[in-house]
Amino acid sequence: MTMATQSGTYMDRPSGGGLVDVVDLILDKGLVIDVYLRVSLVGIELLTVDARIVVASVDTYLRFAEAANRLDLARSGTETKGLPGMMQEIREGGAQQKTKGALEGAKDSVKDTVGGMLGGGSDEDAEDQDGEAEESRQPKHRSRPASRKDRSR
């Protein structure tokens, strides 16, 4: 199982990076010139905060519980799920195209929020999206900090 000799045999090496990857990298990182020279365009500032909210709450617990209930314990474990199946899943878009599991609920809500906030659609549905974004922006429960970091060298 550990005979990987070529780079990228087991790992996913996306070339472009999905929107979530991009958002994570460029919205709250990088140099800022100076408060007085920098122009923050409408909506961007808010997004940096709200797109990263991670909810660990009753909702989260219930999602885990549902996932646990859906799981068919009688089926054989992951040992039988060989590498080819795994890799195919990854190549086919991995998490994004997989049936939505409970654990991915949070990711989707991040995407929805981002999608809603960023617009990207026509002007017609812009208002609609704004409304949704407004709603999902409200952090209902917040017991994990949005971005806790440990720096080490």
Binding site: A95, L103, A106, K107, V110, P145, K149, D150, R153
Partner: peptide, 13 residues
């Protein structure tokens, strides 16, 4: 690596 920054994963999974 010469340096690393560890962040909490942004999603539950």
């Amino acid at each position: 690596a010469d340096a690393m920054v560890v962040s909490e994963a942004p999603t539950d999974d």
